[in-house]
Write a protein that binds this DNA or RNA. Structure first.
Length: 104
DNA sequence: AAGGTGACTGATG
DNA sequence: GCATCAGCCACCT
């Protein structure tokens, strides 16, 4: 597995319960700020196998970005179960729930 | 091998 | 706030 991919996996695994991170943010922490789409690829490829908390990853607008209706519903449900406030449009308040390492 | 495709982003109107 | 656009880059046809 490639270094970038490994680091993406590590970053995603580091997201605490009840917090979220954005694709671009993860890419940056993994060493490649412009590689948001690669984060998506990693999630598609490994979320199941690696048991990643894929539901804690949303876009930079604070919106749940999954296309598939069923998966989107699952993601919103998981987040709400963890205490993240998600409105019916899948909108999350990043100021409140985004996880920023080294801050807290 | 060229072209299409995203669970993206930031800038612009 | 919504719509477009142009970068982005590995992966699939």
């Amino acid at each position: 597995m490639e270094l970038f991919t490994r680091r993406v996996v590590d970053v995603i695994k580091s997201i605490p319960e009840g917090r979220v991170m954005t694709y671009g943010q993860i890419a940056g922490l993994a060493g490649s700020p412009r590689a948001a789409r690669q984060v998506v690829r990693v999630l598609h490829a490994l979320s199941r196998a690696q048991g990643l908390p894929w539901h804690r990853v949303i876009n930079a607008q604070g919106r749940v970005a999954v296309r598939d209706d069923e998966s989107r519903f699952m993601q919103m449900t998981f987040l709400r179960d963890e205490g993240v406030v998600v409105d019916d449009d899948g909108q999350v308040d990043l100021d409140r729930f985004q996880f920023r390492p080294g801050r807290e």
